[in-house]
Simulated assay, not measured.
Amino acid sequence: MSQVRIFTDSTCDLSAELIQNYGIEIVPLYVIFDDQSFKDGHNIKPDRLYHLVEQTGKLPKTAAPSPADFEKAFEPVIHSGDDIVYIGLSSDMSSTIQNARIAADRFPSGRVAVIDSRNLSTGIGLLVLKAVQAAQAGKNSKEVSEMIEQSTAKIEVEFIIDTLEYLHKGGRCSSVQHFFGSLLKIRPLVKVIDGAMTMTDKVRGKRDKALGQLLDNALAQKDIMDNEFLFITHSLAAEEAAFVKEQIEQHTKVKHVYVTETGCVVSSHCGPRTVGIVFAKK
C-alpha cells in the first residue's frame, strides 16, 4: 500500500531534529553572493550569512529550486510507489511553488500534490507537521491536501525585527526611514497577511518593549489558538526565544512549543535578533 510522503522547502525553518523525527523531505532554496551559490541549510547557515553580509556590505540574492531540482527530489519517492504532498513558500514571495508545479506535471496525475502555504518560515513548518500527522493517521494524498489547504488561512505569523538595516539593504525601507528609524530605535512588527510580509506596527524604544508587544499580541489570541503546536522562531536570539517560550507555556494550553532558528533565506530579509511567534487558530 502506498504511503504519503511530505515534502517542503528550506524556508520552513524546522529544526534538524523535527525534520528527522517526522521523516520530512527538504528541497533547499539558493543563497547567492556574487559568483558564490549556496544551498540554504546545507552549506550555509545564518552565522556565515551574516559574516558575508558584513564582509560584502550587501545582501545576497535568493533563488527558488529549479523544476529539475524538484523533479530529482520527487522521482525516487514516486518510483517507490509512494505519493507526495509538497507544501512550499508563498507564491507571492517566490517562484518556488510555480517550479514545484512544473515538476509535479512531469509525473502521473495525482501523484504529486503541490500546496501554496501562503506563508513563510515556521508558518510553513506548522502546516508541514499537521500534514505529517494526517499522513501517519492513514489519510491519502487528496485528504491531506484538502486539510492543509483549509488550514493555510488559519496560520498566524508575527515577527519583531530588531534592525532596519536588512530591510533597507533589501529595498523595503527608504534611506530616510532607515535613518530616523535607527535614530529613534524603531523596531517594526511584521505579519504575514494574504501571503506577503506586511509591516503592522512600529515599536519605539527599548527592545524589551517590542518583545513584550509581540508576546501580548499572541496571548491576546490564546482562546482561539489551536493547542497542538506553536513555534518561537528566531535568528541569533536564543535567550529571548527561551523567555517567550516560557511565557507561552505559562499562559496558554499549547501542548508542543518548539523553538527553532530561521534559515538563511528568512534571515537575509529580517536580519539578526529577529524573533517570531507562529501558531494556528482553531
Rank of each mutant, 00 (worst) to 15 (best):
G181V: 08
E246Q: 11
S151P: 00
P67N: 12
A153F: 05
I277Q: 01
E17T: 15
L164P: 07
E246I: 00
D47E: 14
N227P: 01
Q36D: 11
Q36K: 11
K202I: 05
D216W: 04
Q98A: 14
Q133W: 09
L230W: 03
F33D: 06
I84T: 07
Q150K: 14
P65N: 08
C270N: 11
T260D: 01
V275F: 04
G276T: 05
T163N: 15
E25R: 10
A73C: 08
T200A: 07
G110I: 14
H269Q: 15
I84M: 06
Q20K: 12
A100N: 12
K206N: 11
C264Q: 04
G205Y: 06
R101Y: 05
S109P: 08
G57D: 14
Q133H: 15
R101V: 07
P60H: 10
D13F: 00
V259Q: 01
G23H: 10
L167E: 10
F229R: 09
L49C: 07
R111L: 06
P67Y: 12
S141G: 10
I87T: 03
E261T: 10
K206P: 01
H256D: 15
L18S: 04
V31I: 12
S80G: 05
V275W: 03
T163E: 11
T8V: 03
G171V: 08
I115H: 06
Y50K: 02
T122P: 03
V265G: 02
G205H: 13
D208V: 13
V254A: 07
R172E: 10
K206F: 05
K245I: 00
H42R: 13
I161E: 15
I224F: 05
I155K: 01
R207E: 14
K45G: 03
G138H: 07
G41W: 02
V114T: 11
A16H: 15
T152W: 02
Y166F: 12
F231L: 00
M225D: 07
A135S: 15
D69G: 04
